[in-house]
Design a protein around this nucleic acid. Structure first.
Length: 375
DNA sequence: GAACCTAGAGATTGGAAATT
DNA sequence: AATTTCCAATCTCTAGGTTC
């Protein structure tokens, strides 16, 4: 069966959906087909009437002509696939390249002359890494063609021409934060200094993000805290009081309290999340969980094992095992300090799987525990 | 009430390493 | 050599707050 994919309605936007209902929004019809050629034909037909539709669409969804709830629960259902239209392309000019710094990695971002493309204004596009700059042969001043891949992500497709007075894109040589000479591996440009402030800050931001602490604003709170030197390590976050936050512009008691309450509300995390929150390069929560499942279920067990033993775990070979082990050993004092604040602890053992996959709704007053705890 | 900020939504690229 | 998995990064828009 075929239905239209739309980039207008988001399921969560209840208000908008209601609005659409009131507008007698045309229902999206499905069509049953039997051969691949028919799919292509339908796609062409729809593409031709696309501009006459009352709403925006970006392609088709082709799905099995049945309802398979199990399949639909997958992150990427196997019984349905999007078949989008060829992305619109437009000409523009490269004005500048900014280097976006995240942690220790430097990523080039193209700044182009603002153009309206497929319904939005585009002025930035990732250039991924130094190698891509070279492959494209792009310079400041180059005329380029951009598209939005999947109608969403701006992408520089190719260079049309580069005037003779175009300027070479300069690749940073030293870290703007700590003056360490950057290492350019072609596919990534990074600052190797383990104690680079960018790296230290990134760890804090990762922690907040990993624990899903809401309203702890990076801009208004975390950055100023870091800049003033008040917070260096994750453990420092747990010593903060409201008075430390209201010092900053744009932060008053209400938001300060909210941020700290949210931070302190997380009292227990799984070992995998704990380690994932420390931003060891290439070591995320999911990978760590595999190690935990394989029996390395305490911080010390992981710290005291060997690369060889870790590499017995699926998903880990020498490199990843080494990154994890060295990262944990290096950060162990940090981790201990954090645990010693007694504000957060690692879950003793992985929870049973009896509740896995089930959904619950709490309503009314709970007698024995608070609602948040129950959730 | 204006101005500003955040979260979250959907979507894709592309590198690296591991696995098959 | 091909496939899978993870990770990090990018874009825009808007509802719903907070602060000024």
């Amino acid at each position: 069966a075929i239905s239209l994919t739309d980039n207008v309605v988001f399921a969560s936007e209840v208000k908008k959906l209601k609005w659409l209902k009131n507008q007698n929004f045309p229902t999206i019809k499905t069509k049953v087909v039997h051969k691949p050629q028919e799919v292509i034909k339908v796609r062409e037909d729809i593409f031709n009437i696309r501009s006459t539709l009352e709403y925006g669409i970006d392609g088709l969804v082709i799905k099995g002509n049945d309802i398979d709830t199990e399949d639909m629960q997958r992150a990427k259902p196997m019984k349905q696939v999007a078949f989008k239209f060829q992305a619109e392309e437009i000409k523009t000019k490269l004005l500048d390249v900014q280097w976006s710094i995240s942690g220790h990695n430097y990523t080039p971002v193209a700044i182009v002359e603002k153009v309206n493309l497929a319904g939005s204004n585009v002025s930035r596009a990732s250039l991924a890494n130094p190698n891509l700059i070279e492959e494209l042969g792009i310079k400041i001043g180059s005329e380029v063609v951009i598209s939005k891949r999947g109608d969403i992500i701006p992408k520089i497709e190719r260079v049309i021409k580069t005037p003779s007075d175009a300027r070479e894109i300069s690749v940073p040589q030293i870290c703007e934060e700590c003056n360490t000479t950057l290492i350019n591996e072609g596919t990534r440009l990074f600052c190797p200094n383990e104690d680079c402030p960018k790296r230290i800050y990134y760890r804090l931001a990762r922690w907040i993000k990993k624990l899903n602490v809401k309203h702890f604003s990076e801009k208004l709170m975390l950055k100023p805290l870091f800049k003033t030197g008040k917070v260096r390590k994750i453990a420092d976050l747990y010593k903060l009081e409201i008075k430390d936050l209201v010092l900053f512009e744009g932060v008053k008691e209400t938001s300060a309290k909210k941020a700290l309450d949210n931070l302190n509300a997380v009292k227990e995390v799984s070992l995998a999340k704990f380690i994932g929150g420390f931003a060891i390069e290439n070591i995320g929560e999911d990978l760590t969980q595999r190690i935990v499942d394989a029996g390395f279920n305490t911080l010390d067990k992981i710290k005291n094992t060997s690369i060889h033993q870790l590499s017995q775990v699926e998903g880990f070979a020498r490199k990843t095992a080494q990154q994890l082990l060295e990262g944990v050993i290096k950060l162990y004092p940090h981790m201990e300090e954090l645990l010693n604040t007694n504000k957060i602890k690692i879950q003793e053992k992985s929870q049973g799987k009896k509740l896995k996959g089930l959904s619950f709704c709490f309503t009314g007053k709970l007698n024995t525990i608070k609602r948040a705890a129950a959730e």
